[in-house]
């Protein structure tokens, strides 16, 4: 890697690492894993930097997703724990912190690729075709995985809200109004 490439790579790391780390955090649910994952991806990118022809951010995102879904591939949902230092920075006034916590817990309990679909669609704001390209799957699979994932989240939130409310209207019923 020559000086020009080195400079552009270091600019990329400085400029995009936080965004990529946030995606990695959602994919893994673990801050340490996320940093580990990102570091690995950046090391690999450094080796190939001059030859990466597509968008380097897209390349990094795809590498992150592939590494996360391979490395933590598992049949059973992961045990979800919030890091001790995590405090939502924006007070919730619409549905409540509890529901958003419930959504994150539900998200992190999904199978890795289903989770990745929701992260790419609703956090990275990729469309279905772009998501399919990152995940190397069909658009139909993205649609079905997103639908199943959202349905799973809705069920989890509804069940939790129903249990907590003692029969009062659930999240779905409230938001439907």
């Amino acid at each position: 890697m020559d000086a020009t490439d080195r400079g552009s790579f270091e600019d990329f790391v400085r400029g995009r690492s936080t965004a990529l780390l946030r995606t990695a955090y959602l994919l893994t649910g673990d801050r340490g894993h996320a940093e580990d994952l990102l570091q690995g991806v950046l090391e690999r990118m450094a080796r190939r930097w001059p030859t990466i022809r597509e968008s380097r951010e897209a390349y990094a995102r795809r590498a992150l997703v592939n590494a996360a879904t391979n490395r933590w591939r598992q049949r059973r949902p992961a045990t979800v724990e919030f890091s001790e230092g995590h405090h939502p920075s924006v007070p919730d006034v619409s549905v409540g912190v509890a529901v958003r916590d419930q959504l994150i817990r539900g998200l992190l309990s999904l199978p890795p690729r289903q989770r990745a679909v929701l992260v790419l669609r609703y956090f990275e704001d990729l469309n279905e075709a772009e998501t399919a390209q990152v995940l190397d799957c069909s658009v139909g699979t993205v649609k079905s995985q997103a639908s199943r994932g959202l349905e799973r989240l809705r069920t989890l939130v509804d069940d939790s809200a129903h249990a907590a409310s003692g029969g009062r209207p659930t999240f779905g019923e409230r938001t439907a109004r």
Binding site: H86, P88, V90, V95, R100, I104, L150, T175
Partner: peptide, 13 residues
């Protein structure tokens, strides 16, 4: 809500 939850969850990262 999922979009906002993810933004909240990662805002301090």
């Amino acid at each position: 809500e999922l979009r906002l939850a993810m933004q909240d969850y990662t805002s301090d990262v």
